[in-house]
């Protein structure tokens, strides 16, 4: 990490053009200036709320759809073309279409949702499909209820699939969500700040906001994964 920062500093000094490559020190200084201002936190709150809302909605929808598809084959078959289309469609197409349909304020919610849904759905469905048939056979023989099967067999088995899905999906939700904001320019968003950095050719602002987005994404992922692990530990202590 330190070596990479050092290399970046040396390169920026060699180039000696702030517009092309601003130094890490200048970025740190700009970020420090930004974090003490109210507009910074307003923009963070704006984007954070919308991207996390999109993420959580997709998480719930993806799990519910995967559970249904895992038990009803026809649902899986019906959903397959939609999921395949969502996965293959360029995010820019979704962004422009969403701008036409919804306007810019709720744009990042929908884009984060669209990016996260197929990842969660595919992972959870794969997890359900790979649940131990011997355990399910045992549960069937003993007449274990559906709720208990879910709690004792499916949910513990899905832990690794859920963590894997969240690990990938959170980063993608932030990347796509911010990209949508840069295109849609909703007032008061991080995307708007990045757009302004482009307009005013301010590399320091661009890098500072990028660092902020990376930190938000990483912190959110760490926190969420930690909460999932705590929930699992508590559940398994019954």
């Amino acid at each position: 990490m330190f070596a990479a920062l050092l290399l970046w500093q040396i390169l920026s000094m060699l180039l000696a053009q702030k517009l092309l490559l601003v130094s890490p020190i200048a970025v740190a200084v700009r970020l420090a200036e930004l974090v003490v201002t109210a507009p910074f936190w307003n923009s963070v709150a704006f984007s954070l709320l919308r991207i996390t809302a999109g993420f959580f909605l997709a998480l719930v929808a993806g799990i519910v759809l995967a559970v249904i598809a895992g038990h009803v084959k026809v649902v899986e078959i019906l959903l397959w073309p939609y999921m395949a289309a969502v996965k293959a469609t360029p995010v820019a197409s979704f962004i422009i279409l969403s701008l036409i349909w919804l306007g810019s304020r709720g744009l990042s919610v929908l884009i984060a949702f669209m990016m996260v849904l197929p990842i969660v759905y595919t992972n959870i469905l794969h997890g359900i499909r790979s649940t131990s048939p011997k355990l399910l056979e045992m549960a069937g023989l003993f007449g274990v209820s559906r709720v208990r099967r879910m709690y004792y067999i499916y949910i513990p088995h899905l832990k690794t699939y859920l963590l894997s899905a969240c690990g990938v999906a959170i980063g993608l939700a932030w990347k796509a969500g911010i990209a949508a904001e840069v295109i849609g320019i909703p007032s008061g968003s991080i995307g708007e700040r990045l757009y302004e950095a482009k307009i005013y050719l301010s590399s320091a602002d661009l890098f500072a906001w990028t660092v902020a987005v990376v930190l938000l994404s990483v912190l959110f992922e760490k926190l969420f994964v930690h909460l999932i692990k705590i929930a699992y530990t508590r559940m398994e202590k019954v």
Binding site: Y152, P156, E236, V238
Partner: peptide, 14 residues
């Protein structure tokens, strides 16, 4: 055919 992450008590309670 036990639920690996659960305790002995939980496996019987199942």
């Amino acid at each position: 055919r036990l639920c690996e992450s659960f305790s002995a008590v939980a496996n019987v309670r199942l």
